[in-house]
Amino acid sequence: MKLGVSLYSYGADLHSRKMTVYDAIEHAAKIGCDGVEIVAEQHVPNWGNPNYADVKALGKFIESLGMEVANFSCYLLDFLRTDRRQSMEELKERAIQEIMLASIIGAKVTRPIYMNLTDVKGGDLNTSSTKEDLIEIISHCLPTLEEYDITWALEIHAPFPPQYYNEIIKALDSPHVGLMPDFSCWQTGGLPSEYQSNEISTFVDLLPYVVHVHGKGHEFNENGEEPNTPYKELLGALKDANYQGYVVAEYEGWWMNYKDSKTMVEKHFRLLEKYGR
């Protein structure tokens, strides 16, 4: 497997303007990452309608440091307007644009996340995005995914159950659609992003469809372990399956309090190396 870092992990210092995206990429190269994940809404200037040259330059810079764009994460935002929700046609159009931007930056995997937590929390289901929506959107995008040789990764993140997207994978049955498990689904310890830990077997069941992995982390103990996340078991399962894609460190402790991003990212990446190399 290949190991990298999601630039999301540098959030504390990007949010507080202490680092630039380019600083974060340089740091990731310095600690030995094979690739980095870009989160468009955090890292691409003037997102929404970015300058293509800016997007290309970002990809070129990553490549110049001997790394790849492990994944181009983005969001399919449906409440961006105040007066109404985005229409299905607008969402489809947006998804096509995001796939093309993924290609421009040099990614082979993209994650245009489209979800509504009311799906699992209950609440106003009239505003809920459904799996049927996703099937319609991705079906519309399949020719573009094929043309640009990009894979759409469906991110499985707590509180969604690990098997949440299985029916979409089966319905679409395409090599250009896969799964992106986020370790939050298997974290314990009552972390803010965690609702209910799942058995490791539920991770193993997903492996045939996995195209990218988020190694979620919130804190690291004196032994370099993430005490809430069974890294040894999860990365061990990927090794046993001879998984060839990326696992990227996604440090999220920065939401809770400020800690130096470079220090935390390096600890996190060493943990990936410990069980993933």
């Binding site: 949010h15 507080s16 303007r17 929390k121 209950g122 509180p159 314990t188 009552g190 803010p192 609702y195 209910q196 830990s197 920065w254 939401w255 809770m256 309090n257 400020y258």
Partner: peptide, 24 residues
């Protein structure tokens, strides 16, 4: 581990977003 109830989970998320947002 017990599943958190929805209300407490939402409150945690709100507090977390406010904590981050009001920081810098």
């Amino acid at each position: 581990m017990e599943k958190k109830d929805v209300a407490s989970e939402i409150n945690e998320m709100v507090e977390l977003m406010q904590t981050l947002g009001e920081r810098d």
